[in-house]
Design a binder for these strands. Structure first.
Lengths: 134, 134
DNA sequence: TTACCTGCAAAGGGTTTGCACTTTG
DNA sequence: CAAAGTGCAAACCCTTTGCAGGTAA
């Protein structure tokens, strides 16, 4: 998979991928760095960024911008899914619906688009944080 | 609308909103600044950023991150719409589908979510830029 | 062996902020 | 007149890059 482009599978790259695949959450570069560093104290944040870009290009990792913040990453999963972020507590809820898939599919067919990535991000207030009309 | 929170309607704010409402494209802060500056040479980029944040909060302007780049802004329109960005030529195609709306609606109802914003961003290659399997 | 990769530290670029001055309401 | 907003320039923060020394294949 990585080898296709003359890319090497170094221990740093394996480590970054492991960190993401073992995590249920969406980690930002700093968080991946922290977890990787716990197992390889020599690893640098520059390598983390370079590796994340590489893994993303290889399709092994997806980048999304939750909230309005900086980038977050997660290991690619078999089924596509979308995100909701609570503006108050920061909780992220994932969801998936075939309707969205179908709508996107038909748009791409109609426009002759070759789809590479899909990001659907909702934001607002979750059940616990919402304020009823005050 | 702005007045609700003791906010003032200054000429700079009006100008920034005008710029966005008159533009068909998605402008980034720098572009809004350039166009505003043409009419008010004294305006500063800091005011543009502060104003964009304010207008967004007021619901008059929407922010989206097209491509993977920095923020772009557009005046809020009556109907929600989504974006596709071509990774090669940068072209942005807008689209809308009730299916997506419905799916989002039902997710929010189920999760008791108070929705504030929706961003659906597709990326890939447009009809003109796609490379058939090489 | 040799292209590719890493760590370090410095640079980059979009965005935000502190402060003194101006303006709106 | 008081509170809010502006312009300027410096600060910020996430991310990228140049380079000299390592390392996978």
């Amino acid at each position: 998979m990585l080898h296709s482009g003359g890319k090497r599978l170094t221990k740093q790259r394996q480590l970054a991928l492991d960190v993401l695949q073992e995590s249920a959450e969406h980690l930002d570069a700093e968080a991946v760095y922290a977890r990787a560093k716990a197992r390889d104290p020599k690893i640098s944040i520059a390598t983390i960024y370079r590796t994340l870009a590489l893994l993303k290009e290889a399709g092994l990792v997806e980048e999304n911008r939750l909230g309005e913040e900086h980038a977050h990453f997660e290991a690619t999963r078999s089924t596509p899914h979308y995100h909701f972020t609570c503006l108050r507590c920061g909780r992220v809820i994932e969801f998936d619906t075939p309707q969205v898939q179908e709508a996107i599919q038909s748009f791409c067919t109609r426009e002759k688009i070759q789809l590479v990535s899909v990001q659907l991000l909702l934001s607002g207030y979750c059940a616990l944080c919402r304020r009823e009309e005050e």
